[in-house]
Each structure stands twice: as C-alpha cells, then as structure tokens.
C-alpha cells in the first residue's frame, strides 16, 4: 500500500514537471513582442497603386493597339476554368461614325468567314462551325476591302487561328481549389502548346485591388503583361508581380491569336482570331512549411 502511494506521488510529480515543461515550450514558441517598438508613419498605411507595364516586346500583338473603326473576328474564351468554352464570330463597329458607311451594322451581312456569311440572318447556326476554325487558317472576306499588310486574297485576309488555349497549370480540378494559392517566385504556367503559332502567347497578370485577407485596395489596379514563345510552358519573372500585395486576388490571362489591320477609304478595320483562357488565383508572398512537414 505504501509502495503504491509513493508510486502515485512519483507519477504525479513527473506529470506536473512534464506539463510545466510543455507550457514553457509553448510560451517559448509564441512570438515575443515585449521589446518591439513599431513606428507608424505616413508610409505605413495602405496606398493605392496604379501600374500598367509591358515586359519586353509583344511583337505582332502591337497591331491590336492601332485605331480601328470596327473589329471583325472569331474568338474563343473561357472565364471560368471549369466552365464551357465560349466560341463565336463577331463584328463590332466600335464608335462607328455615321458617315463611315462601311462599318454600318448591315455591312456585316456581306462578311464571309471561310466562305460563309456568318452574320447574315439567313445563316443557320451549326454546331462547332466556329470552333472547328481554330487550329487552321481562316479566310476573312470583306467585299470592297483591300488588305494593306498581307492577305491571300484580293478582297480579304487570311489569319492563322491558333488551337484553343487552355491553362493546364496551375490546375483547377473542382470548386474546392478554384482559386489556387500561387507563390510569386518561380511562378510556372503551363498550357497546350501550338507549334504553328508564330506570334507567341500573351500572358497578363491583372489585379484590381481585391484582397483575400484584410481590406481591399479601394482604387488600385496593376496590369503586367509579357509575350512568350508558344512552347506550352513559361516561368514568370518576379517582376510580373511587382506591386501586387500578399493575398491579392488576381487574374491571369493566357492569350494567343493573329491580327491584321486593314483600310477601306477612311475606315480602319481590325481583323483578328484569338483564343484566351483565364485563371483566377491568390498571390502569396509569405509562406511557411506546415507543422506536419519535416522540412
């Protein structure tokens, strides 16, 4: 009985010492701030940021910035990684002055894409008719328009419509990982390569002030873009994320296509074939290895 009593006391003492040590360890692991003084000055507060920067030469995509009275083309896009592809032909007379008869809406009926009057009311929609144009040369015929840069036919232009682009990494497999966390260094992007596309791929990082931790930046925007070879893989420079804060909710556009600008009298027309995919992600600048990790 006496032995049992001493054994009980011994175990109790050991347990007490153990708990005490554990508490000490936890206290030691807890960050200490007693000796820290933090200075708040005018630079400490949230500042609105506005950056628009092109990294390097974007090649033929510069043509997109030339003024145009109207844009004719085909487009394929996906704004939601798990959603359906939106594919369409379009004719968009942007701010067309009434005096420029060539870009009136009814002019669209005369436009032919691969020999079809795709905008005519009598034309019936055919499944995949536009989708099937991607990955091939596409002939745009606009009666009365003479190409100024290049073109296979006297009344139109032929563009290479690249394969529909899809971002494969960072990957989204379900709603649960719809917004992946991406570290700002060694940011690798992968997509389906199109070796026939000589124009390269535009990669655009866009942030409009939205945050996943803390307050949104109320009036900020940052756009970084670059053009890379269409190899299916690119490692983005850290500078592509300059100014974008930790936990910023960003979008990445991966876009490829072809574009030509043409003139008719005093009317400028832009003809393009493009495909783009968009990934929304959270930019991360501060990382740590999890508690379960041995690293």
């Amino acid at each position: 009985m006496k032995t049992s009593y001493f054994l009980f006391i011994f175990v109790l003492v050991i347990a007490t010492i153990s708990c005490s040590k554990s508490r000490e360890t936890n206290e030691m692991m807890k960050p200490q701030t007693e000796d820290i003084v933090v200075n708040i000055n005018n630079n400490s507060f949230l500042k609105n940021i506005h950056v628009t920067k092109v990294h390097g030469n974007i090649g033929k995509y510069e043509n997109f910035f030339l003024d145009a009275d109207a844009t004719i083309g085909i487009s394929s896009s996906r704004y939601y990684p798990l959603g359906e592809e939106t594919v369409m032909a379009f004719y968009d007379p942007i701010d067309a002055p009434a005096t420029k008869s060539a870009v009136k809406d009814d002019h669209a009926y005369e436009i032919q894409i691969n020999g079809r009057n795709v905008f005519a009311p009598s034309t019936k929609a055919e499944d995949n008719s536009i989708t099937s144009m991607f990955g091939k040369n596409v002939a745009f015929a606009i009666p009365g328009i003479i190409p100024t840069t290049k073109g296979g036919e006297s009344n139109g232009v032929t563009l290479y419509a690249p394969e529909i682009v899809r971002i494969s990494f960072p990957s989204i497999s379900s709603e649960m990982n719809r917004y992946p966390l991406c570290y700002y260094k060694e940011f690798e992007v992968r997509w389906n390569a199109d070796t026939a596309n000589a124009n390269g791929v535009i990669i655009l990082i866009k942030w409009d002030g939205a945050m996943v931790f803390g307050e949104d930046y109320p009036d900020s925007y940052i756009y970084h873009s670059t053009c890379v070879s269409d190899t299916g893989i690119a490692v983005l420079s850290e500078s592509m994320f300059d100014g974008i804060p930790d936990t910023a909710f960003c979008s990445m556009f991966v876009l490829r296509g072809d574009v030509e600008n043409m003139e008719l009298d005093d009317t400028n027309l832009r003809v393009l074939a493009e495909t783009h995919d968009v990934l929304e992600f959270v930019l991360i600048r501060n990382v740590e290895y999890g508690l379960d990790s041995n690293q």
Binding site: L181, C182, K185, R190, V235, D292, Q295
Partner: peptide
C-alpha cells in the same frame, strides 16, 4: 501553395 510548377501541400 503552387510553387516551381507543382502544388506543394506541405507549404
């Protein structure tokens, strides 16, 4: 966290 072309679940 996605880093260096892979998803790292330890990070």
């Amino acid at each position: 966290v996605n880093m260096s072309g892979a998803l790292n679940n330890d990070l």
